[in-house]
Design a protein around this nucleic acid. Sequence first.
DNA 1: ACCTGAACACCGTTCAAGT
DNA 2: ACCTGAACACCGTTCAAGT
Lengths: 205, 205
Amino acid sequence: MPRPRSPLLSVDAIVSAALSLVDSTGDFSFPRMARELGVSQAALYNYIDNREHIIELMRGRIFSDRTHADTDDLPWEEALRALAREYRARLVGHPRLVPLLVTQTIQDLAVMGFYEDMATVLGNAGLDVSAIVPAITTVDYLALGSALDLTAPDDAWSAPDDRFPALSLAAAHLKTREERAEAAFEFGLEVLVRGVQQAVARADF
Amino acid sequence: MPRPRSPLLSVDAIVSAALSLVDSTGDFSFPRMARELGVSQAALYNYIDNREHIIELMRGRIFSDRTHADTDDLPWEEALRALAREYRARLVGHPRLVPLLVTQTIQDLAVMGFYEDMATVLGNAGLDVSAIVPAITTVDYLALGSALDLTAPDDAWSAPDDRFPALSLAAAHLKTREERAEAAFEFGLEVLVRGVQQAVARADF
DNA sequence: ACCTGAACACCGTTCAAGT
DNA sequence: ACCTGAACACCGTTCAAGT
């Protein structure tokens, strides 16, 4: 095959192919991407460095196009809730990508933008500077955990078990996994908001 | 090679080999386990079903030998903190195992025992039954996220960046990744404890 | 019952060769 | 500059064959 007049590939096309494979199968590979794109496996390396690079590009993709919400006129509680929920929603949109994301260092600017906005909101709220990173990190843990939960095949919560009476009772009227993951996130977020309120009001936190 | 008088392998030996490979390299494979144990790759299948099975066995290993702490005479706040911290400590003992754990359904009884104990403590505290699973799940997210953080190569928090002034300020006096991960967990846990206190005291949560 | 060797289908990455 | 085909070292799983 001669060199085409216009390239057959692009970074965007590769990232799209990878992301759609992850969404539909839970993973991606070079052979499958190449098949999907109608090129040879080796051709991909003209655009990307390696597998990790593609994962970082997928992270960038799902956090791109962030419209900087004007949270300035909102009470900080509402601003924080909005930021945390949007952050989670980006992950929940591609839950099977999350396991690939959590083992890699974040380099993406859009993600850092989320953190920056949360730091600003918490700083404006009056939270002590030493508590800001722990608070943001808590939001991060809640969002990641909640998104990871959506990838689990089926869980032990739903199966009543005589050996775990307290747990079975608490889990008795549980709805779908999606609702449970969201309820846990909202619970954690609300607890965080109230904790920050307390920390701001009194200096003993 | 004839069949040995006593088996060369055992489930325990396989799990030990897998876990030590995970601890030292971040992953495990059948060829490397077989080399470590001095047997052929195929021999492993006499004791385990597949790769996922080994991961579940590793989960069981790190949560085994749980001494049922008598949390009955403690205030529920202290009991919850103790349970949450022990749960996290088990994961932090093998942080590189955590990425392998998070994508699989929990079947392990010892893990369920942790959940059961937390459900009991929260129920005794007077927390509404509908909030018990969200609260336990929050602890789970915090512990998993905090342990996952320890596996990250090196993070963006530490690098000051003019584009993220609020974040850089908040991250200025950060210590090691270990301390940051633990501080975030403790912050989240404290916020959770106070949130449960509020929810118990007033019914408006 | 417990192990080996060989096979199969998969994977990430490199590299010489083509236009 | 952009692509192909072949190569290499790796992987999980199966299975006939040996004792």
